[in-house]
Write a protein that binds this DNA or RNA. Structure first.
Lengths: 194, 194, 194, 194
DNA sequence: TATGAATGAGTCTTCATTCAT
DNA sequence: GATGAATGAAGACTCATTCAT
């Protein structure tokens, strides 16, 4: 029962991911998603209240999985620098290996109302918090500057990585995203001043 | 003569800026923009081919002005660190003092097709290049690391600032954006490692 | 099953026939046709791609029925003169008894692009061919002149009848159309010379 | 003064003829006609009340010239058969030599409301009457059947010729229209029966 | 008279959502 | 639960017509 219900639910989300990634949110008709998911149009409304919910849920689901991966990877790493490196590596490789998801997170998710943007901000929160915790831990360990403005720097870190991914995507993915990890982390840790 | 022809054009762009900022691109009816601009619906189509053109032109126009300001400000500053500080300061203060524009650049402009995203990327280019030139200059002066990956770092800088602005906007502008300049630049220059 | 799917299709065509006949193609709003057909505006687009398709399909459907009647009537008549008389009789009586259809065929169908005119020409073809076959048969039987230019005369026959119907319609249908059959056929067969 | 006024008036009608012939009435924007005529959009409204008036006046003007030609040609011909031949010859050759006009009379003029169709019917009247007079004259001379239904036959004649022209036009003018005169007149005079 | 920028009413078409089966 | 035919609100865009210059 539950599994069957979950089954269609997942099929619809997979369909939405494909269609959103290819056409963008506003140009993705519900009927197209239904076809991609192999269900009837109306069926979608048994699992999702509105079209926008598809985006939100897709995002929560996928981001949840990602955050889980981040947490799993970092949990057993005591060295915060190494942990930060791992976070960036996962951030880049996961999206590089899942272009559809990258499209949705970098392009489609932004195509939404202020209201939805707030929703999205909320869902990103755990990831931002994870970064923040790393920063705090680093400060406590004396590895990071003691006067670090963690609230600001967590944004700077996330924004920097985010832009790298978006730029890579828009450029047509002509280079390796994973190849940017070292450069990114080096910048984070040491800045640009000699 | 010229001013008169330009007059309506500007009025329409101003109207579009207001309406886009308040409602977002997709929920902004052309008729609402016309009303805000004080012209008839049809008049808009004498100056712009499609609704989307409003967004593109608005963006080009405003971004052009911004880039001009950046260039003017930086031109006579020899100290690249100071120049970078100035760039960040302008980036934050300009958007803080022009919330409507901030809304459009941070939220609405992203609400567009891949195609338009590419357009936008093109228009951001001069700004990115300006940052890149600063980086190169700094490397040459020996102020920045000699092995700096300027192509990567310019993205990191831009992305970091961009995220700070967006986050400030989404949070409801509860704190001073200009107040983040020092922290941001400090991060850029020195990184986070102790 | 089939009947149900066809049902709405037919209802829409009937609605279109009524509205086109009353207001003409260009002044017939789709919403008015929908109301006349007892369906929602959008429903029309489940069965027809564009408004113009309504005209084309209506025409094909109705003309097809007419041509069928012509063929059925003539099939068992060996005397070509009698057959020609029958054709003219059906031509006049069918349109006299179906004023809405007459409006559409004589007035609205002509209100269309060159492109559509060609479509219409194609659909009239079977009728023109039927007349041509009668002429050929008559020549073979020695009932019609041996040197008859059938390609030309079939047009002359059709054009003559067509004009009579249009004139009758435009005049306000003040006389009997069926009453013109004998005069028409007499003209066809014997000409006007003493 | 008058000549100058007439000059623009004529230029506009010429422009309208060209544009209507090329694009058809409904797809001919007033601005396009203005450009073709070399005047401003508004100028057209100094000479014509509505767009539809362009069609009506164009039609009256051109048809008036044609009817004049018919009358001039027929005036001095006593032999009604010869006169009828002349009428058909002019009908075909004039339109064959003036394809734009042919387009307008055969295609565009029909693209109009019932109301306009009536107008057109009125303007055709002199031509129809001219044919009728020939028929009456022929009957009086004993050249045509004494019991000829002139009201009906004038329609049959006009309709037949009209269809030949339209068919020639739609077919792409692949054969000579003037070459159909003899066949047409033969049909009119002698009918098709052996 | 002539202009052409401005107007704004008018309409086709799309597509998210519903609901009878 | 599942379907998909039906709905109808919504809105971008066109273009005949006007009128200030």
């Amino acid at each position: 029962m539950t599994s069957k219900k979950t089954e269609k639910y997942q099929m619809i989300l997979e369909g939405a991911l494909k269609v959103f990634a290819e056409h963008g949110f506003h140009k993705s008709q519900v009927s197209k998603i239904a076809k991609a998911a192999g269900v009837a149009d109306g069926t979608i409304y048994l699992y999702f209240k509105r079209k926008e919910d598809l985006l939100i849920c897709l995002f929560r689901e996928k981001l949840g999985e990602l955050v889980q991966k981040f947490e799993d990877s970092v949990r057993d790493i005591d060295d915060v620098k190494e942990a930060l490196h791992k976070v960036c590596e996962i951030h880049y490789t996961e999206l590089e290996n899942n272009v559809d998801l990258a499209h949705v997170t970098q392009i489609e998710l932004r195509q939404s109302s202020m209201e939805l943007r707030r929703e999205i901000g909320m869902a990103f929160k755990p990831y931002i918090v994870l970064i923040e915790n790393l920063l705090v831990k680093g400060v406590q360990q004396g590895v990071f500057k003691p006067d670090l403005d963690v609230k600001l720097v967590r944004l700077l870190l996330f924004g920097a990585m985010d832009e790298v991914v978006t730029s890579w995507l828009i450029s047509g993915r002509k280079y390796s995203l994973a190849g940017q990890v070292n450069g990114t982390i080096d910048f984070f840790l040491k800045g640009i001043a000699r």
